[in-house]
Design a protein around this nucleic acid. Structure first.
Lengths: 206, 206
DNA sequence: ATATTTAGCGTACAAGTGTACGCTCAGATA
DNA sequence: TATCTGAGCGTACACTTGTACGCTAAATAT
């Protein structure tokens, strides 16, 4: 059978990945995980780890990529699903908060490694965030007709305000999260409205 | 001589604190520091550590407090110094970015422990951030005459956008930081302007 | 002068770490 | 069929870690 071997390897690879995600919690950051811990959780021998990843950093980068991808797809879906009807701001914020509630480990990973101790990590998270910013900026450009630079600055402010609300939400009861969403929505509206005013000042024709 | 003993103790206590701050860098987060490392840097025996702090967490909380206090005082000074003349937004952002350039370890500590693995840490950083928000909200209230809730929401958005710019700045050349400041200033103006518009809508009399 | 307190040290230990090395044996290749 | 490849394992080693315990000596209290 062709690929049976490779199939098995992929399977253990994901056992490792899942083990790492499982170990992440409010009390355990990725950088505090040890290789042995991960392999223990994955049910393999410590040295087998190296058949799949060079070191813990390589695994971590994989986690960031996978996590970021999942989140991005979710956001894109949400934006398309509600195309036209309903406020994009509200939909986006609520989708995002939902994601955080469902898989807080992923969000925490991004949050922590954004200011982590490895340049490669920070870069990887930065890249994920840029994806968000770019997608949102494009959306703003298309629907509002802003010039690129203004749209990007605005998008960036929005993405980070939402991230910030998410960070706040991590330590709260689900009941308090609705209020956080409301606050974030208000903040995004400030940004949107302010950007609009500035634009009217500079390009009165638009 | 009264207090000679206590004086010496304070001195070693600060040897420990300084040692910890020194060890913090782009590559070393607080949570990655070991007790032995800190004492080695401080030039004392590992077990002597316990004469001053219960454990590494207690030391870390002290660092957060001291760092936050220093930053807050700086910001307050800046706001008072330029009272009236010059844009508060610009002055605040630039003072903040200067602080980050001068003592990046302190800022990095706050940034990392905000999403760290210990609740006490997160709480401590949250408290520091709240100080900023409250002070800024009061300022906005007094100068702009906003109601408390709007002022707080606006202040929070501003503080976090600045923090975000700071996080970005940590990995950049000083030459690139000016552009980051400009961007942050623009984002804060969006927020200020947007909040203003919203307020006009709701309380046309003000 | 004597007794008490205590900051700092050295030793010691159990526990955990990353990873080098060589083996096995199932699956792929020829 | 026989040969080769490589995923996974077990052992082993040199380190680092936190901290318990008891000592010393200097500063303080009596």
């Amino acid at each position: 059978m062709s690929g049976n071997r490779a199939q098995q390897k992929q399977k253990t690879r994901y056992r490792i990945i899942d083990a790492a995600f499982n170990l992440l919690s409010q009390e355990r950051s990725y950088s505090s995980l040890s290789l042995r811990e991960v392999t223990r959780e994955a049910g393999i021998a410590p040295t087998s780890f190296y058949r799949h990843f060079d070191d813990m950093e390589a695994l971590g980068l994989t986690l960031v990529d996978e996590g970021g991808l999942a989140l991005r797809q979710l956001m894109r879906e949400a934006r398309q699903r509600l195309q036209g009807r309903g406020s994009v701001i509200q939909i986006s914020v609520e989708t995002f908060m939902e994601f955080i509630e469902n898989s807080p480990q992923v969000f925490r990973l991004l949050l922590q490694e954004r200011s982590g101790t490895t340049f490669a990590f920070r870069q990887a998270v930065f890249r994920e965030l840029q994806y968000f910013v770019t997608e949102l900026a494009e959306y703003i450009q298309q629907t509002q007709g802003y010039p690129v630079s203004e749209a990007t600055i605005q998008a960036e402010a929005m993405v980070f305000l939402v991230f910030n609300a998410g960070a706040d939400a991590l330590d709260r009861e689900p009941s308090e999260c609705a209020a956080l969403s409301q606050k974030a929505i208000m903040q995004l509206r400030f940004v949107a409205r302010g950007a609009d005013e500035f634009l009217k000042l500079r390009h009165p024709t638009l």
